[in-house]
Amino acid sequence: MHERLSFFVKRDSPIHRLNPMTKAVMALSLVLIAFLSPWYWTPLALFLFVILPLSLVARVAREYWNFILKVILPTLIILFIMQAFFLPGESRSIFEVFGLEITELSARLAFRNVMRILVMISSFTILLLTTHPSELMSDLSRRGLPGQFAYVVISSLQIIPQMQAKAQTIISAQRSRGLDTQSSFLRRVGGILPLVGPLVFGSLVEVEERAIAIEARGFTSTRPKTFLREIQDTSFDRALRWALIACVILTLILRIWLS
């Protein structure tokens, strides 16, 4: 069981040193530009000329490619094939099998859609590889996000791996009792409740004690909060954020103007 659910790789790089909010704005801007841009090649260009250099500057290229190749690429390939075959597009056929065909138009559309999704996943991946979750939530709380949000996010990140481990234990326990994934459909349906029951009830009972424990530590205090983590926010950060927002607005204007 991994202790925590976090991509974060502790390194020293210019990207790591950026303010977390700046990186979050960067990730969102990249996604919005990829989806809003009126030009066909924008997602690919963003990937080649922004995402890849970023991963190198941030010194997380190895981790980034590891994740993309192992986890994301297989899904993207399936998505591309399905879309290329089934997206409607009346144009020159370039490939045909079992009466299904890929046309030039459907292939073009499929490629753009897949690139957009790649940019979306990549920009968030780089954000998470270079930003510790506590740092991000601390910074957002300082900027006025209610402390409860930070609590929910960080707590989820810690509870999920614990719950995954519990689910695995339950699954293997049930398997050893003969409940196989190859059993009949009805047996598997009947198998849900004994599997899910203990997991859910067990974790719900803990809720009350944890609520008491954090109340005892001023969780609902109305006094102004302070923060243990000190997070830098330079004038460069601020300038970069405004520039990114300007790029998004520009893309939006071009999109409306050109269509």
């Binding site: 609590y151 999920i160 614990q162 719950m163 519990k166 849900i192 599997l195 719900l204 809720v207 969780f219």
Partner: peptide, 18 residues
Amino acid sequence: WVLMPVAIAINMAVGQIV
């Protein structure tokens, strides 16, 4: 607030079991 992370983890775990 304490229930929410648990609920999120339940979503994930039940999805995984199913």
